[in-house]
Simulated assay, not measured.
Amino acid sequence: MKILITGAKGFVGKNLIVTLERLEDLEIYQFDIDTDPALLDTYTKDCEFVFHLAGVNRPQNVEEFMEGNFGFTSDLLNSLKNNHNTCPILITSSIQADLDNPYGKSKKAGEDLLFSYGQETGAKVLVYRLPNVFGKWCRPNYNSAVATFCHNIAHDLPIKVNDPNVVMNLVYIDDVVEELIRALNCNETREGDFCIVPIVHTIKLGEIVELIYSFKNSRSELSIPNMADAFTKKLYATYLSYLPEDRFSYPLKMNVDNRGSFSEMIRTPERGQVSVNISKPGITKGNHWHHTKNEKFLVVSGRGVIRFRKVGSDKVIEYHVSGEKLEVVDIPTGYTHNIENLGDSDMVTIMWANECFDPEKPDTYFLEV
């Protein structure tokens, strides 16, 4: 199947193309502003589906809105007509097509042109009035406040919020691409004359900004955003894509002594904390028990033994562990426990605790195994 994509280098275009390229039996014709104009006629001769994603958002002058959003659409449809090609054509418009501004008027003109084309030729037309789209690869300081906020906050640059109470309707780029693929397979989501992306997130602008700042602070706080919330999960993924390339990593505080080190990696109030424990050869750590606090140990390098003894009992239980055979050991409540490095090199253990350590209520009681 031959597919023509206009605006191929744009935000939606790039995300759509990398998805389509994973599918079999597709040939993609990519057309953008720097493509040889003569190729438009070549591509429209035998293309079997058109994703018309090209558009103008931030022109030098307002006249370019109509030239880009109406004029090029006209050129594309005329080229299809000249080649007697009535394949389906999908256009990404904007909810602003209902507004009385130069951008909205140009989008509305492009929609009307496409609907008329469909009536004239019998071609299937799909018009998507998209709300604000966010996600990776969106240009900051161009047509997305979310992209601008993510970029600026990640780069320690100021942002400007005129009204934090403005309600935003947003769609995530992956949800957009999934819907476009459904449309390609004749399974589009329709609402009257228009097509829609069915998953829309509604949130105040100020709340978006607060979330993005919380993402930035999560490194120092060792926190993880609430991944159970769909919008937070998608916004966090978007924020990470704007990190400066020299700031992908961040240091952890290593608590070091002659026994090795202990470093917290993640702290969450609802899912506990994850830490990395490094033990020197021959070192034993632990010898304590908990009432309610529970843990999971996973040795990923080296070899050792985890010992348990139920409080009030003399019986010692041993679990030999090694990085050569990964297995998680639960640390039950009411058992004093320790972990000893039996190898000749450092032993590295990933430790999860069901609650973050609270020095005011440690629930940790010393007792030799």
Rank of each mutant, 00 (worst) to 15 (best):
W137K: 09
E324I: 02
D36K: 08
V311K: 11
N152D: 15
Y213S: 02
E48H: 08
V125N: 00
V166P: 05
E21M: 11
V161S: 05
I306V: 12
F51W: 02
K325P: 00
V171G: 06
G343I: 07
L4M: 01
I339S: 09
D112C: 09
M66N: 07
D363I: 01
K315N: 14
T284Y: 04
K204Q: 15
S275C: 03
C186Q: 13
V209M: 09
F357C: 01
D257Y: 12
I173V: 15
L126Y: 13
S301E: 13
E360W: 01
Y250H: 14
G323N: 05
L342N: 07
K296M: 12
F70E: 08
I331F: 08
A38D: 13
L298T: 12
F297G: 04
G71K: 06
F65I: 05
M265R: 04
N165Q: 15
N294C: 11
R259Q: 13
T238P: 04
Y172A: 03
F51E: 02
T232V: 15
Y103I: 07
H151P: 00
V299Y: 02
S275T: 00
L77G: 10
I3E: 01
E324L: 06
F262N: 12
V56S: 02
P269R: 00
A147L: 05
N294M: 09
T92W: 02
G68L: 04
S79N: 03
M1C: 03
V146K: 04
F248I: 12
E368T: 12
D229F: 00
E210G: 07
N78D: 14
L222E: 00
D46W: 09
K9M: 04
K216A: 12
E327A: 11
S279E: 05
S218I: 08
E355C: 00
D75I: 10
F51T: 01
G7R: 00
T44H: 04
E360H: 10
E179H: 03
M1F: 03
A109I: 00
W137N: 14
L114H: 10
S261R: 10
Q119H: 15
V316T: 11
C138L: 03
I199W: 00
D163N: 15
Y319R: 12
R309C: 11
N294F: 12
T232L: 09
V299L: 08
T19I: 01
C47R: 03
T189R: 07
E64N: 11
V127E: 04
S249Y: 11
D257N: 15
K233D: 09
V125P: 01
